[in-house]
Design a binder for these strands. Sequence first.
DNA 1: TCTTTATGGTGAG
DNA 2: TCACCCTAAAGAT
Length: 273
Amino acid sequence: MPEGPEIRRVADRLEKALVGREIVGASFGLRRLEPYADELVGATVESVRPRGKALLTAFDTGRVLYTHNQLYGRWFVVRAGTTPRTGRSLRVALETERDRALLYSASEIELLDADEVERHPFVAKLGPDVLDAGTPPRVIAKRLASKAFTRRSLGALLLDQRFLAGLGNYLRSEILFFAGRHPSERPCDLTDDERAELARRIRSITKRAYTTGGVTEEPAFVAEAKAAGEPRRSWRHAVFGREHAPCRRCGEPIERLEVGSRRLYLCPWCQGR
DNA sequence: TCTTTATGGTGAG
DNA sequence: TCACCCTAAAGAT
């Protein structure tokens, strides 16, 4: 289940299993790609890198596997000789002597030449990846003030991969809540300090989701809820998916809106009006 | 066995 | 803004 943080965690696992290793078996579960499987056998994996919600697996043959999970794709990394129990359809299999990396259900899969990657229609449009070391809050704040983005609503901006790559629907709600901003506000309505604070939240909440595996709620609260034996769904997010539940800061009921044809959850009191 | 929903994305108007 | 595509799982009947 894929926003930037989830994809980056998968990239980490694939990197451990594949980088520096030779592919001894490969297959594609999509007819149009079947003819290309053989050329991957004997190739060595050079890198596995996330790019927003896309994943780029580069081989020493100069070829790059582009995959995008959309809502449904799911990678499994298992030992050679084993197969995950799933009723899903297998779309990519990359095998080394030791491991198998298996992508199920995804449909956005392409095998490119290295020099085609930056021209790929999806990759070409992406803004900087929120989780890249080269995207500190200062860079994000500058982007918030830039002409291309500053007059758009935060609700629209935080889903636009041209603004920042890797944010998605749960991060949008969570970032706006922790930043105390309403989705209808625009960056140009904020002061420099407020934009800087928002930029810090964009970065810190996304990083938190990466290190925790998708948990955006405050660590102290999470530890307490876990200790009390509460189920994950009750402490994973502060507002996302919590319609009608009381806000943990002020007690007001969380509301649900449609913003940009996606659901957005917010605390009307904490996030102004 | 339906219908709906989902942490995503595209293109037409 | 809307219709549409992708696939799997949950919910309704």
